[in-house]
């Protein structure tokens, strides 16, 4: 087994093995381990940092957009509330105006109504008075025609009053 044989004292290639191993491995360590590896790791680190920064920037932009949206929302709500208030005010004012006008019209109508009622009452009174005198005449005529007796106007009037007014 050549691997074990080289560990014995008088073997020609053990020294060569160790020498070349140390030379090659030292070369790999210096050139690749110390030279290339840190650069590659730096690239990876730079990329990781860039990704982290970009993510942070995106997060910040997201937060800013959220804040902007919130302020827009608040503005919209405020203006909507203002508009609703204005509408409510206008409605109230219109309702009050209408009420006022209605009240005025009501009063006028009431006055007209009471005037008309007074007129009617007067007309009725005069009509009743007329009916009475007509009835008195008619009653005295009827009595005169039926019995030929003349009735005194005052008697006829009393009789008619008694019938009319119960």
């Amino acid at each position: 087994m050549p691997q074990i044989a080289q560990l014995t004292a008088d073997n020609w290639y053990l020294a060569s093995q160790l020498f070349w191993l140390l030379v090659v491995f030292a070369g790999i360590y210096v050139v690749i381990g110390r030279g290339m590896l840190p650069k590659i790791e730096a690239t990876v680190d730079a990329r990781d940092r860039k990704v982290a920064d970009d993510l942070a920037a995106a997060k910040a932009a997201h937060a800013a957009a959220d804040a902007l949206e919130e302020s827009y929302r608040q503005q919209t709500e405020a203006s909507r509330a203002a508009a609703q208030k204005a509408v409510a005010d206008a409605k109230g004012k219109a309702a009050r105006d209408a009420e006022k006008r209605l009240a005025k019209v009501d009063v006028e109508l009431g006055e007209k109504l009471s005037l008309a009622e007074a007129d009617i009452a007067a007309a009725r009174k005069s009509a009743m008075a007329e009916i009475e005198s007509v009835a008195v005449e008619a009653a005295s005529d009827l009595v005169a025609k039926l019995s030929g007796a003349k009735v005194a106007a005052a008697d006829a009037k009393a009789a008619v009053k008694a019938v009319l007014h119960g």
Partner: peptide, 13 residues
């Protein structure tokens, strides 16, 4: 020690 370039050294390189 005599140092020789061997097939082992070749494959390391």
């Amino acid at each position: 020690h005599e140092i020789l370039f061997t097939n082992s050294a070749l494959w390391m390189v």
